[in-house]
């Protein structure tokens, strides 16, 4: 069992996805779900039970699944495909790119086991490259909500977007951050703390490490401007630039390789619009290994302590 933060009640965001699919299925009969033999894990079994005639299990064949969903979307369906992030973004990558993204079809690619949340499954099931890959494909919207309530809103919003959405989900439980449900809008960062000393931009499960770091930094008198950048594409440049204009230093935190993902997206924006000292927290271009989630975060330099160190250091580089 993965240990989670502070023993709070937690929910894997894949569970929120599975539950929301059923809700969505009731609201809209154009919603169809494709699955590749891991419905108990991706939680699409809930939809399968509720709407067996709109659920299609294609077996362990993600490439076929992705392109079948394209066919369904061409016929006016709102298609969801579910698998693990490793397979959704890489095994079926070119199907996603050519059959889904190129014709801009309403195929929503909901993938679990983001990054180290796959913990003891090891490297084969830890997607650490997917954000970079998917983000580089035109027409894609790329989202990783941090908790169950925001996942619910992201799923609902994805169905309405006329084009493909990549929805990155966690294997392990996440605390509830947005109790009443956040004011969630795809493409709009959520400011979790306001501060003027350093900006921390986090995505997905790393939002909780960043929150932890921000609280500890506050004790030292360091004001953190903390953004939950749940949508990595399109990136909320406005919120990012407004923040760094005040703070002049930024740390990014993602459960992903620092190459290609959130850190890269933020660096691209800042490099073009407002060069700012920054540090990227994430896997430092290395594969990880099996282990408990917390142990992996600590070992690979991604826990709150490392974010705190990074924040202090980057503040020292302010011009």
């Amino acid at each position: 069992m993965a240990s989670t933060l502070k023993g709070e009640k937690t929910i894997p965001t894949r569970h929120a996805y599975g539950e929301t699919l059923v809700e969505l299925g009731k609201l809209n009969d154009r919603v169809v779900v494709f699955e590749a033999d891991i419905s108990k894990s991706t939680q699409t079994y809930r939809f399968a039970e509720a709407f067996p005639d709109r659920f299609f299990n294609v077996g362990v064949a993600e490439q076929n699944m992705m392109a079948m969903a394209a066919g369904a979307a061409i016929c006016g369906k709102i298609a969801f495909v579910s698998t693990y992030a490793v397979f959704g973004s890489m095994r079926a990558c070119e199907q996603m790119r050519t059959s889904v993204a190129y014709p801009k079809l309403n195929v929503n690619i909901a993938v679990s086991h983001a990054g180290l949340t796959a913990y003891d499954d090891g490297v084969t099931h830890q997607a650490i490259e997917d954000l970079g890959i998917v983000r580089s494909i035109p027409n894609m919207t790329v989202v990783q909500p941090c908790d169950a309530p925001s996942t619910r809103k992201a799923v609902m919003a994805a169905a309405k977007i006329d084009g493909p959405v990549y929805l990155r989900l966690t294997r392990i439980g996440m605390p509830i951050l947005y109790d009443a449900g956040p004011d969630f809008e795809i493409g709009k960062a959520i400011r979790l703390r306001r501060g003027n000393d350093v900006t921390i931009v986090a995505i997905g499960d790393m939002v909780f490490q960043a929150l932890d770091a921000a609280e500890q930094l506050a004790i030292e008198g360091i004001g953190v401007d903390l953004l939950d950048m749940h949508t990595i594409k399109p990136l909320d440049q406005e919120a990012l630039l407004e923040s760094v204009m005040r703070t002049g230093a930024v740390v990014t935190a993602e459960d992903h390789n620092v190459v290609g993902g959130l850190g890269s997206a933020v660096a691209e924006t800042l490099g073009e619009h407002r060069p700012t000292p920054m540090t990227r927290i994430g896997l430092q271009d290395t594969f990880a290994e099996s282990g408990a989630y917390d142990d992996l975060l600590r070992h690979y330099g991604m826990d709150a302590r490392h974010i705190i160190e990074a924040a202090r250091k980057v503040m020292g580089r302010k011009k």
Binding site: Q63, A67, M68, A70, G71, I74, C75, T98, S99
Partner: peptide, 13 residues
């Protein structure tokens, strides 16, 4: 390699 899957999705719908 992709067209048969796309067609299958259409036929199934």
């Amino acid at each position: 390699g992709q067209g048969l899957s796309v067609g299958l999705g259409m036929a199934l719908m």
